[in-house]
């Protein structure tokens, strides 16, 4: 029997690719921001330690 319903796979695949892309980009961005914040805090703490008299 021939189906009269169009396949419409394109819409489904576009949706899944968009979702995976958005989540993936957000996770990568979060980790990059966390790394930058950690480095910044460490740099500030390091500068203060070296500038504080014993």
């Amino acid at each position: 029997m021939v189906s009269v319903v169009p396949s419409l796979w394109g819409y489904a695949i576009a949706g899944y690719v968009m979702t995976a892309g958005a989540i993936g980009l957000y996770v990568v961005a979060l980790h990059a921001r966390a790394r930058r914040a950690r480095d910044r805090a460490a740099a500030i703490a390091g500068r203060r330690r070296t500038s504080t008299p014993p």
Binding site: V5, P6, S7, L8, W9, Y11, A12, G15, Y16, T19
Partner: peptide
């Protein structure tokens, strides 16, 4: 979830494979 949505679940009788967007929407 991707396997369930894209492989196991059948296409909808009226909306075809576009109905698979349900599982992420």
């Amino acid at each position: 979830s991707a396997v369930m949505s894209l492989v196991v679940s059948p296409p909808d009788a009226q909306q075809g494979n576009a109905a698979r967007l349900l599982y992420i929407h």
